[in-house]
């Protein structure tokens, strides 16, 4: 079966003052039809550059890319008819109303809101009460829903979403991912980027990206299975002191705060935990807990960054 999205040895660099920035450094991957694929990484990973290459807004220095089997350089016109793109920055017409924005984008693609109404219905009903309001006067959440409706209006076969949940609170993020799952059920391939590592587990497969490179690409469980060490979580009455005491111990390999716990790995393969507990008790820690824990995508990302 043909991949829905495909990148082959993509390189892209930018000149920033005197320095050359390698935004994408030999990126290759494929996204299958109907897949919900995540590009996970911090700012500067190259996520946006990759989106711009796939949506034919930018040309790579080297390498090839395809969307729906079409080449991004020679067949860009055909690709533009088939992709939906929601950039990270709100880019609809601020001085057109909700309704006018939708009909503008519908006209561009020679369609109407009604024609593919099933696809956008769930999202559109939430902004319909504001259809006479100028887009610039909408709240952030409503802008996002309008942008998504506009990106879907021509029933694209592939949807590119650049950091749709950045700066969005935990509740709205959950709701947005539910929307994505529903869109996926309608057969749309979705490529979504996010700096939030916990969202990786909501994707079918993810590419972990950092500084223009893919650190790993797999299913979320495939990635966490590859964590090379036994991971422990620890807590005590004084978490700050616990961090300092653990970091100062030469048996400790890594120690990172992780919500209510610190996540620890040890240098030795089979670190005997009683001696660590004893050391911490001697340093005055009370209510000490240390137990084995399952690594998350974020633990794996940090391990890959350190390699």
């Amino acid at each position: 079966m043909e991949a829905s999205v495909r990148a082959q040895n993509i390189f892209k660099s930018f000149q920033s003052g005197k320095t050359k920035v390698e935004a994408l450094n030999d990126i290759s991957f494929e996204v299958e039809k109907g897949e919900l694929f995540g590009l996970i990484g911090p700012d500067g990973a190259g996520k946006t550059t990759l989106f711009r290459i796939f949506t034919t807004l930018m040309i790579a220095n080297k390498g090839n890319a395809w969307v729906d089997g079409l080449k991004v350089v020679s067949q860009y016109r055909e690709i533009r008819k088939r992709v939906g793109y929601m950039p990270g920055r709100f880019s609809l017409y601020q001085d057109l109303t909700v309704e006018e924005n939708l009909s503008f984008f519908a006209t561009l693609f020679d369609t109407t809101l009604e024609e593919n109404y099933d696809l956008v219905k769930d999202i559109y009903i939430q902004i319909e009460p504001f259809k006479k309001r100028r887009a610039g006067a909408l709240s952030g959440g409503m802008k996002q829903k309008l942008a998504l409706s506009c990106a879907l209006i021509h029933k694209p076969s592939v949807l590119f979403l650049d950091e749709p949940t950045t700066g969005v609170d935990a509740v709205s993020r959950q709701e947005f991912w539910e929307l994505l799952r529903n869109l996926q059920l309608q057969g749309i391939t979705i490529v979504v980027s996010t700096p939030y590592m916990d969202e990786a587990s909501l994707c079918d497969r993810v590419a972990l990206m950092q500084a223009g490179k893919i650190l790993d690409l797999d299913t979320p469980s495939g990635i966490t299975r590859k964590f090379s060490k036994t991971l422990w979580s620890a807590s005590s009455n004084d978490m700050y002191q616990l961090m300092n005491d653990l970091k100062a111990d030469e048996r400790v390999n890594t120690c990172y705060p992780f919500g209510q716990y610190h996540h620890i790995t040890f240098k030795g393969l089979n670190q005997e935990i009683q001696s660590i507990e004893k050391m911490l008790a001697e340093k005055g820690h009370v209510d000490l807990t240390i137990q084995k824990t399952e690594p998350t995508i974020e633990d794996c990302f940090m391990e890959l960054m350190n390699q």
């Binding site: 990484g41 911090p42 700012d43 950045t166 700066g167 700096p195 590592m197 950092q210 990172y256 705060p257 974020e298 990302f301 940090m302 960054m305 350190n306």
Partner: peptide, 12 residues
């Protein structure tokens, strides 16, 4: 929101 978009190690 001082750590928005920052990598997980730098965040820590």
């Amino acid at each position: 929101e001082p750590t928005g978009g920052v990598d997980p190690i730098t965040r820590r």
